[in-house]
Design a protein around this nucleic acid. Structure first.
Lengths: 205, 205
DNA sequence: CCGTTTCCTTGACGACTGTCAAGACTTCTC
DNA sequence: GAGAAGTCTTGACAGTCGTCAAGGAAACGG
């Protein structure tokens, strides 16, 4: 039966290839950025040749959008673990701040790509829908953290979901910039401190 | 004497041309984004031909960096007027929120370019110094608003300058995204409300 | 085992890119 | 007004890009 080689259903194989290509695309985009990542470079970082892209995708943008949507799935539950594991407001605060720092340490290229693509969406119409969906999903993810934090603290959030996301995303982005561009002494320590200072301010008193 | 035609000192003329070119570059970049703005397109939006760029600049990046530095000068004092004109904390809060909204209404292309370039700086080493300088300058600008607001309210800021900038920049960025990508019903109204809700939270109580 | 379908590589296309050299045009100097 | 210096245009260069067509390779169905 050659169990491990071709176990996937024939219809799924197409999708497996698409995912493999998209993964290479994300890796390359995270390394070079949207402006400089070519299809040939993306294919070089995969096990295929450059022509195969147009067998699985209509054009470059469809590949990127597909990859961006994949990326969302891995992002969406990143902080749900710390929410579930924390029994007090202080615990949640520390764990959340720590998780944000770890995210930058472990996946900086992926996140600079995200900010790159979000900026590109302001110029490139075709990216808007996918980027907008992800941004809303991230907002919901952050909102789950904030509401749970408020609940544990016995208080109400002082701002709406959209504002809370903007606030924390802004701080996170500054941390990423500092980490990658190296203009601060200890950008990730700053990020940790700032999250611990700002999140409590978002509770009504 | 032909008073108006060639009044500039010969040494300055060179700089006047560089500024004219850089201005065209900023206009084009704001329209097309970093990834798609070519030197020929930039020159087309100016009164010169495409070859002249390399007479005044070593390469494309030097032109862009020069333009980005120019942009900073126009940005840096944008909110100082509302700081000077406001006599109470509530006045300052309203005027500042309103000014942020106006900024997006009047100069959206310029600001999507800023976020584009800041994202590019995470990939392109050559942009980092200029982008970092501007980011720090913007932080100082925001900090002047926050400290004056705290002063008028008779309180101390609850967060440091870096965090305050991250928070407000994040909210502003969400407003710009909503305005350009059109995923919300009234993004600028949301921005105004959010600023008025968040800024008071940044005071120590 | 042959024929068919699916999958992938190769090579080429036209268009576009940043760069630069050659020369024309303008402006200044004597 | 001739020569020199500065300014700008034009055209070409070597690359790279996304795209696609032709055909080989592999998997599949009979």
């Amino acid at each position: 039966m050659a169990a491990t080689t071709t176990r996937v259903a024939p219809a799924d194989k197409h999708d497996v290839r698409r995912r493999a290509l998209a993964e290479s695309a994300l890796r390359t985009l995270g390394e070079l950025g949207y402006a400089k990542a070519s299809l040939r470079e993306i294919a070089n970082n995969s096990e295929f040749s450059h022509g195969v892209v147009h067998y699985y995708f209509a054009d470059k943008l469809e590949l990127i959008v597909f990859g961006v949507r994949m990326y969302k799935e891995t992002c969406v539950t990143r902080y749900d673990g710390v929410v579930a594991a924390s029994g007090t407001a202080a615990e949640l605060l520390d764990a959340f701040a720590e998780k944000l720092v770890e995210t930058i340490e472990d996946e900086a290229p992926m996140h600079r790509l995200w900010y790159d693509l979000r900026a590109q969406s302001m110029f490139e119409e075709s990216l808007r829908e996918a980027v907008g969906q992800i941004d809303r999903t991230l907002e919901e993810m952050i909102w789950r953290v904030v509401t749970r934090y408020a609940e544990l603290a016995g208080a109400e959030p002082a701002v709406a979901a959209h504002a809370a996301y903007g606030v924390l995303d802004g701080i996170f982005q500054q941390g990423l910039l500092g980490h990658l561009n190296g203009d601060a002494a200890d950008p990730l320590g700053d990020l940790r401190r700032e999250v611990r200072a700002v999140l409590p301010l978002m509770l009504r008193r």
